[in-house]
């Protein structure tokens, strides 16, 4: 029996994959699946002043920015239900997004120039989220003011939930929406993150 094990050891050693081969094959899979239209979404992770972020893109554009406290694994599982399960870790497909965000975090970028996929949101929430880009960099509006500017002055609470469910925070700047008394209100990435973004924009 021990000599059978010797044979199996030899087989195991001879076929042993090294990490470099696996990485190379993974990149090839990303490339081929994109060409063949099999990729439902790609994702990557990046470090930022407000913690680690997960970026997810479909063919149509950036579809989700997740904060660490949302539980990345859970977000991936949810997205695989909503966008399709064929998602691959593919930093190379999100390089331009990561670059623009890095420029934003250093104060060098005030507007994003990215294709966005708003398929995770809809209705009044989407209307509000799309409106957010009209709040200038470095300035803020109250939930009430946003409700007024989308033509529904009584909808402050609905504006609040639109901000809370914004799939593309930072890029659609829900951090620029505060309570009427100037207090922070809420933020999916946590209030300290909201504070950091507002400070960053007022300093730049």
């Amino acid at each position: 029996m021990s000599s059978d094990n010797e044979v199996l050891d030899a087989i195991t050693t001879a076929t042993q994959p090294d990490q470099a081969s696996i990485d190379r094959l993974h990149s090839r899979l990303v490339e081929l699946s994109a060409i063949e239209g099999l990729l439902d979404a790609s994702y990557t992770f990046m470090q930022s002043p407000i913690g680690e972020l997960m970026l997810v893109a479909s063919d149509a554009g950036l579809v989700k920015i997740a904060f660490e406290n949302e539980n990345f694994e859970q977000v991936l599982v949810d997205l695989s239900e909503r966008l399709g399960p064929r998602m691959l870790l593919a930093p190379e497909r999100l390089e331009h997004v990561e670059l623009e965000l890095m420029e934003y975090f250093t104060g060098a970028r005030k507007h994003f120039d990215l294709a966005l996929d708003l398929s995770l949101t809809g209705g009044f929430r989407q209307l509000v989220q799309q409106h957010l880009v009209q709040i200038d960099y470095g300035s803020t509006k109250s939930y009430k003011e946003v409700a007024e500017s989308v033509g529904n002055p009584k909808a402050s609470r609905a504006v609040g939930s639109a901000c809370a469910t914004n799939p593309l925070p930072i890029v659609l700047p829900c951090h620029r929406v505060l309570r009427s008394d100037g207090s922070l209100g809420g933020y999916a990435g946590g209030l300290p993150a909201k504070r950091i973004l507002l400070d960053l924009e007022s300093a730049a």
């Binding site: 076929t15 042993q16 994959p17 696996i22 599982v77 399960p85 870790l89």
Partner: peptide, 22 residues
């Protein structure tokens, strides 16, 4: 509930490569 395909690759890439090599 289906896991993202990345997890399938991460879990099975090495085994499949061994089989293909052999």
């Amino acid at each position: 509930m289906k896991q993202p395909f990345e997890h399938v690759v991460a879990q099975h890439a090495a085994t499949v490569l061994r089989v293909c090599r052999f």
